[in-house]
């Protein structure tokens, strides 16, 4: 093993020498033939490797859609597992081309860290889970409760704000990881476990008897989770943003992975035709061909299909669409027009 270190350093230097200068991200990705996508090291429903080492999940599906649009191969994605600490520097340093790691879109991340968020692919919010035995039906009845809370997160601050605003007291039980939180909560070390609602749902699904636990209706914070790219390459940001919009618009327009082959030949709805490239040539405007959206939608289906396959009500995680329904269904998903 001694000299593998040297060999690697050697390989690295030759690689540097051979690298071309100043390419756009799109050119870099296309010449590499692979999309580097930063994902979570493991978050139920959003990104996790399956038994064959193939990554699956909601965030993963978005990366596959981008890879399909750009490279014509949804499997040409190199998933880079990132932790909460390493995710931003991995993106900033160019180790990943796109970060799809259930990252909350905030002002400072967008402005100060020089990232461009591509939109929101999941509207999350902080919620509470209690045991059914506690007989609580609203978060406002939680005065004096012991609360398991992950330290150093925005959830900790949100919790403090919420209890102060409502004039209630609580006793925090500091927890390091979600896994530890599950154990503490099940062991009865705390009455309430609080984190993002999607996380609560995934946690509850893993319990031996999920029906003994209730997720309270109150959602006390806004957590718009979205993919992000670096500042400075607007073409690449546009590709990512409009891939997301294409998935959302496809659901609104009724384009699914099942009927896309018929629809791409042309329909009597001009919006669908423009989206799928049988009319106009939208793809050429950001350096792709006209069928980019067809491939993105065919990769894992439209937004609704991805949702129900990874985190929806049919899966063990069982999340309802809620805020993540189309604007026509009372949700917040609203794709700008394709024209």
């Amino acid at each position: 093993m001694k000299n593998s270190v040297f060999l690697g350093a050697f390989a690295a230097t030759t690689l540097v020498a051979g690298l071309a200068q100043a390419q756009t991200t799109l050119e870099t990705v296309q010449s590499r033939g692979e999309l580097n996508c930063g994902v979570s090291t493991g978050l139920a429903g959003f990104s996790a490797p399956d038994g064959n080492g193939v990554w699956q999940g909601f965030d993963v599906a978005f990366c596959r859609a981008v890879a399909a649009a750009v490279l014509d191969d949804p499997m040409a994605v190199n998933f880079v597992p990132t932790t909460g600490q390493t995710r931003f520097s991995a993106l900033a340093s160019g180790e990943v081309d796109i970060l799809a790691r259930n990252t909350t879109w905030t002002f400072s991340r967008d402005v100060d860290l020089n990232f461009t968020f591509l939109g929101t692919n999941y509207y999350d919010g902080q919620g509470f889970m209690v045991t059914r035995d506690l007989g609580v039906s609203s978060a406002l009845e939680l005065d004096g409760a012991t609360v398991c809370i992950q330290t150093g997160t925005t959830t900790e601050l949100n919790l403090a704000d919420y209890f102060r605003v409502n004039g209630m007291a609580y006793e925090p039980v500091p927890i390091e990881t979600n896994a530890e939180a599950q154990q503490q909560y099940l062991a009865g070390a705390c009455d309430v476990y609080t984190t993002d609602v999607s996380g609560l749902a995934a946690t509850r699904a893993s319990f031996a008897s999920p029906s003994d636990h209730v997720i309270l209706p109150e959602v006390i914070s806004k957590e718009p989770l979205g993919p992000a790219v670096r500042h400075g390459d607007d073409q690449w940001a546009d590709i990512g943003r409009w891939t997301l919009f294409a998935l959302i618009a496809a659901e609104e327009l009724g384009v699914t992975s099942a009927n896309i082959d018929e629809m791409k030949a042309g329909t009597d709805n001009p919006e669908i035709n423009r989206l799928l490239g049988s009319e106009g040539d939208l793809g050429a405007m950001f350096g792709l061909d006209s069928e980019w959206a067809v491939r993105a939608i065919a990769a894992a289906g439209n937004y609704g299909e991805i949702f129900s396959a990874t985190i929806g009500e049919q899966t063990p995680i069982g999340l309802a669409r809620g805020l993540n329904a189309q604007w026509t269904q009372g949700g917040l998903l609203y794709a700008p027009p394709f024209r």
Binding site: T41, G42, A44, A48, P49, D50, G51, P81, A179, A202
Partner: peptide, 18 residues
């Protein structure tokens, strides 16, 4: 902690599978 999937990291990833 830097996102390499050693046995501990993989135990997290495995647990993330539903």
């Amino acid at each position: 902690f830097i996102g390499l999937l050693d046995p501990i990291g993989l135990s997290n990833a495995i647990r993330a599978d539903t």
